[in-house]
Simulated scan of single mutants.
Amino acid sequence: MRRRESMKVAILSFYDFGEFGGGTEIFIKHLQKVFPDSDHIKYSDTSSFKKLPKLHKINLEEVRMGFAIGLKFHQMHRERDYDLLISNGIAGWYLSILRPDIPAINVSHFTYKGLADHALRGTPGYYPSKYFIPTFEKINFYGKVNVAVSEKTQRELKKYYHCDAKVIHNGVSLERFKPYDKKLSREILGIDWEGPLGIFVGRAEHAKGFDVIESISKLMPSIKVLCVTSSPVRNKDLIVIENLPHNMMPFCYSASDFFIFPSRYESASYSALEAMACDLPVVVSRTGIFEDIPEEHVGKIITSFKPEDYCNAIKEILRGEKYPTRQYVSEHFSFERFSENYKDLARMLIKE
């Protein structure tokens, strides 16, 4: 067994946060803090392999990208002699064929079949996600210890692929994400609104329930929804902030009275955890972590996508009942817990 002061870890994914600021990219930033001696290998690092045939016309581009990332890892492993590989989804599928001589962890942030069933019906991405990409998703499980980011994802891995996975919850920093003064936060963000304010964070698309958000804004003109998104949104009924730096998010949550997220499919939403860390009650759909969290701890969990049901839940939230959301995150989703869980797993695998 190699003995080093710190573990050399290779982290594989399609993008970094500067390229695509989603939940997986936030996860990777957290993982880099857990493993300071790590290299993040992403598709933009694979320039020498980009001459491979493109597959975007048949919605299999991520399969091609995973192949290139696997070749890049193989090249870098000869130079860096890593102790551990952590793959995020099918970014590491080809390494189940190459089989490097070090322990490997696969982190499943969702399943393609689950995404297809719940959010992609009627879209061009449905058939590839339901029937083609899962072949590579299943290949990706071999030769790795499989981790799911939530119990929901764990259940889907078992249901669709008969794959056993260990759950390690995502974590957020309660030092960074904490409540600030509401009035000051609105001033910092330039929000000229004194009434009730909800916050939606995510892409403005059907899968995230943005159609429900737009309906709520028309049904409840006495409130406003702050929409923090990377999507171009033109809706005079919403307060829209596009492409906001992530370090400004605590002020967005603190400026708001509740978090609203009628997403049709999630596994472990970082924006929900960040909002709760800032002590916001939530009005959310029953997906992801909210399939397993008791409603009385966090706010209102809705089992439909009817705008009227969300409006009624918002009215109940605005009556002022307190929910221990920050305490719940502290007990179940802290960064410290996340860090120790991944360190413990890494130590165990390297020791073996």
Rank of each mutant, 00 (worst) to 15 (best):
A346H: 07
P324Y: 00
E331F: 07
T325P: 05
L318T: 11
L345V: 10
F338E: 01
I317Q: 08
Y323T: 00
Y328T: 03
S334H: 04
T325A: 06
E321F: 13
E321V: 11
H332D: 00
S330D: 06
S330G: 13
L345C: 09
R319D: 09
Q327W: 12
R347Q: 14
R326T: 03
Y328Q: 04
K343G: 13
S334M: 05
L345Q: 08
K322R: 15
R326A: 09
S339W: 01
L345Y: 09
H332M: 05
I314C: 11
Y328P: 02
I317Y: 10
T325N: 06
V329S: 03
F338I: 01
R326L: 03
L318H: 07
S330A: 14
Y323H: 10
F338N: 03
I314K: 08
K322G: 06
P324R: 00
P324S: 00
E340P: 13
F338M: 07
P324G: 00
S339F: 04
V329H: 01
R319Y: 09
R326Y: 08
T325Y: 01
F333E: 00
Q327N: 14
E331L: 10
R326W: 08
S334I: 03
S339Y: 04
Y342V: 04
F338V: 02
F338A: 03
I314E: 02
H332A: 02
A346W: 08
E336V: 13
E316G: 11
K322P: 04
E321C: 09
Y328H: 11
I314F: 08
Y328S: 00
K343I: 12
T325K: 02
E316T: 14
A313H: 07
G320L: 03
K322C: 12
A313D: 06
Y323M: 04
L345T: 04
S339Q: 10
A313P: 08
Y342M: 09
T325V: 06
D344P: 12
Y323W: 07
R337C: 03
F333C: 03
K322S: 13
G320T: 01
R337Y: 05
F335M: 04
I317A: 06
Y342S: 03
H332Q: 06
R337L: 10
E340F: 12
